[in-house]
């Protein structure tokens, strides 16, 4: 069953038509990758799923996105609980300039998830374990998150997100600031996280999409050109534009 469904989605930045009649359906507990050249609207699409585009004053959106059978653009939608359910990992690792512990505790305190100190410590530990950081950082919980390597920082950001118990993880080029080895580690982590979460990743890196995704969408100039199983997109796409892009003719 589809968890996220976009129907006739159009998005404008002022007069600029950035998403043109996008329809897609994202399945539960799979990794869906959105690929396409710079400026094709893939990050914009990702940011409609948790309504981060609302932060830009000139944005105007038509159509609907249904998550868990609820249109997230409906007037009754509680944006804060939507964003808690649909979490986001950003392009550059962006921990707060606080300690490792405080970074994960941030969301827990906001949502009053952990009531006692023990509960808080336990949940922080669980969070770090789920991103395989616990062994590296268990003695450094009080050090500033700014002293971590980029890979550790990005893992920490994922742990900070997982701690508030989302259902969907949106990842906006999560490896673009990382070296190939760190990228590989994050990809392994994504495959691990897939067991419990639905992941939507935007990536510039076609090989990455081919490696990790179950379903792949190809976007070009604001349109979703093709959306299908990853192996189909990367071996035998239906559309000529998709084939041209994955064979490196442009992009």
């Amino acid at each position: 069953m589809s968890l996220i469904r976009a129907e006739k989605l159009n998005l404008y930045y002022g007069n600029f038509h950035a998403l043109i009649n996008v329809n897609l359906s994202i399945e539960e507990k799979r990794i869906t990758a959105i690929i396409g050249p710079s400026g094709c609207g893939k990050s914009t699409l990702l940011r409609t799923f948790n309504r981060m585009n609302d932060l830009i004053e000139t944005v105007h959106i038509d159509g609907s996105i249904i998550i868990n059978n609820e249109n997230i653009f409906s007037k009754t939608t509680d944006i804060d609980s939507l964003r808690r359910k649909v979490g986001m990992v950003f392009q550059r690792p962006n921990p707060f300039p606080l300690s490792v512990y405080e970074n994960i505790a941030f969301g827990l305190k906001i949502h009053k998830i952990a009531k006692t100190r023990n509960e808080l410590e336990h949940t922080v530990e669980q969070g770090l374990k789920s991103v395989l950081l616990w062994d590296q950082l268990k003695d450094k919980l009080k050090t500033s998150a700014l002293n971590l390597t980029l890979e550790q920082a990005q893992r920490l950001c994922i742990a900070r997100l997982i701690a508030v118990k989302p259902e969907i993880l949106l990842m906006d080029e999560p490896c673009s600031a990382l070296d190939p080895i760190a990228t590989m580690h994050i990809e392994e982590l994504m495959l691990e996280l897939k067991k419990n979460y639905t992941i939507v990743i935007v990536t510039h890196n076609m090989q990455q999409a081919a490696r990790v995704s179950d379903d792949t969408g190809f976007m070009l100039l604001g349109k979703l050109i093709e959306f299908n199983k990853a192996e189909k997109i990367f071996t035998n796409p239906d559309k000529k534009e998709t084939e041209d892009y994955i064979t490196g003719r442009y992009g």
Binding site: M52, L55, R83, F90, N94, G107, I110, L161
Partner: peptide, 13 residues
């Protein structure tokens, strides 16, 4: 700006 984005994306008001 990223501090605000992260916080909002975690569901903070």
């Amino acid at each position: 700006r990223s501090f605000r984005e992260v916080s909002l994306s975690l569901g903070a008001t």
